[in-house]
């Protein structure tokens, strides 16, 4: 539950930042209440599906590349399906091109935040080991 919330927070922040940035160049809709709620729906859906994928991964223990691929596919699938549903994206192959400038950086940022969390844990564990010595 905590990880779902964390992923949701990271990705929502990143999505909002990128929508704001790309809307300056007419590459994304202007940020409004509706767009913010839709972005939240994207983030929450991605977080829930990723948590579900993690549960599957626990039993299968996929390699890092398979894991990355699954996560990117989840991000794209959610943004495309919901983007078309909310009429933010056109119902054509072009939707993939429109979604890519937001999905890819958001994915990288979310992944980077997970790495930062992991680094923080490693740091705390190392301190605990040093203390014992």
């Amino acid at each position: 539950m905590k990880s779902v919330f964390m992923i949701c927070c990271y990705s929502f922040t990143a999505v909002i930042l990128f929508i704001s940035l790309f809307s300056q160049f007419d590459m994304a809709p202007l940020l409004s209440d509706k767009v913010a709620l839709q972005a939240f729906t994207f983030s929450l859906s991605i977080a829930i599906i990723m948590a579900f994928a993690d549960k599957i991964n626990k039993n299968a223990d996929f390699s890092i590349w398979t894991d990355l691929l699954i996560r990117i596919v989840i991000c794209f699938a959610v943004v495309l399906i919901e983007g078309i549903w909310f009429k933010m994206l056109p119902f054509s192959w072009k939707a993939v091109i429109y979604a890519a400038p937001i999905v890819i950086p958001v994915f990288i940022i979310t992944y980077f935040f997970s790495y930062i969390t992991c680094m923080d844990w490693a740091d705390k564990i190392n301190k605990s080991i040093q203390k014992k010595k």
Partner: peptide, 13 residues
């Protein structure tokens, strides 16, 4: 027996 840990980009330690 663990001497130290290091975070990996893959999210593993």
């Amino acid at each position: 027996v663990v001497n130290s840990v290091r975070a990996q980009l893959s999210g593993r330690l």
